[in-house]
């Protein structure tokens, strides 16, 4: 088999010169400082992985990756950036739908490994995407909304999502994580809409575990919480599909939920594609052990109690 193709985009040539020798032995390496050149390659060539800088003079990385998604959906998308602004990370999730957010300076071995995994997945995807068929929605999609005591937000979500649902989806409500986990085990949930703080519980570990063991479940995070590192972790370890700020923008939420359902359908119908959301393992240290409740949940997910019913 021919070597997979990597495409690096960064306005600093020295970054490109440094990355190229690192991968040349095992991959075909393309690199450019010019995003429009990169788009041309994506159009004309088969690219398995694109790794882009965020801040570039002519185009932001998140925007480049958004266009890459349209031109070449099978290509795996990574952002490699030295800046840690929340706006950029949000755009990278919501527009770029990236596989990994890697911070500069990076560790060479780790980057080699991350890009290597992406390339493996990219190779398989190139085929999978050829056979993508969109089946008409047979059954309504189960949407789980996890909201704490924020009644206002709950109502808005009920309003917006409920309206668009019709025959297409069915809403389920959880007001704490226990209820959420129970529903996740019992119903065949396709899309999760959740805040990061449910009352005083932190939902991120649950979100990450869910993606790890149920890759076809698509998560939309709606939160007031604004922390860049948390978001980066949610990308790399939780592959969240959307990250939306509160107060909720109606248009944004309704569009996001629509495409989340579509994406869930794609992942359900073509399980190979779910591989593109492989998550980075969460480092578990003695100080950061999982609460019993969560590890119970993980065990049940692992056990694959698959007698889920609609």
């Amino acid at each position: 088999m021919s070597k997979p193709t990597l495409l690096f985009v960064d306005d600093e040539e020295r970054i490109l010169r440094s990355l190229t020798p690192m991968f040349r032995a095992d991959y075909r390496v393309l690199s450019t400082t010019d995003p429009s050149r990169a788009l041309a390659w994506l159009r004309d060539d088969k690219v398995h992985v694109i790794v882009s800088d965020q801040r570039m003079p002519t185009m932001l990385g998140a925007e480049l990756l958004r266009q890459a998604r349209e031109i070449s959906p099978a290509t795996m998308r990574l952002l490699l950036t030295g800046y840690s602004d929340l706006e950029a990370a949000m755009a990278a999730v919501n527009d770029g739908e990236i596989y990994r957010y890697v911070s500069k300076p990076w560790n060479m071995q780790e980057l080699r490994q991350t890009v290597g995994q992406a390339a493996q997945i990219g190779l398989r995807l190139a085929e999978a995407y050829q056979y993508v068929t969109t089946t008409p929605a047979a059954q309504p999609i189960n949407i789980l909304v996890i909201e704490g005591d924020d009644a206002g937000a709950g109502n808005t979500i009920r309003d917006i999502v409920g309206q668009g649902c019709d025959m297409e989806c069915k809403l389920h409500w959880a007001h704490n994580l226990e209820q959420a986990m129970e529903l996740l085990m019992q119903k065949d949930i396709g899309v999760v809409i959740t805040d990061l703080h449910i009352n005083d519980q932190d939902a991120s570990a649950t979100v990450k575990a869910l993606k790890r063991y149920r890759p076809h479940v698509v998560t939309v995070v709606v939160t007031r919480f604004r922390d860049n590192n948390t978001l980066i972790d949610l990308i790399n370890q939780g592959q969240i599909y959307r990250f939306l700020p509160k107060p909720i923008s109606r248009g944004l939420l309704s569009r996001s939920v629509q495409s989340a359902m579509q994406h869930h359908r794609l992942l359900r119908d073509s399980p190979q594609i779910a591989a593109r959301h492989a998550v980075e393992p969460v480092a578990e240290t003695p100080q950061r052990r999982l609460p019993a409740q969560l590890s119970g949940f993980i065990n049940r997910l692992r056990g694959g109690l698959s007698q889920a019913n609609g």
């Binding site: 010169r17 030295g82 800046y83 500069k104």
Partner: peptide, 20 residues
């Protein structure tokens, strides 16, 4: 600080390359 991350990125990577 973020601007430093770009040169730091390739400097570090180059040094790791040299080591290898």
């Amino acid at each position: 600080a973020h601007e430093i991350n770009t040169p730091l990125g390739y400097v570090r990577n180059n040094v790791e390359l040299f080591l290898e």
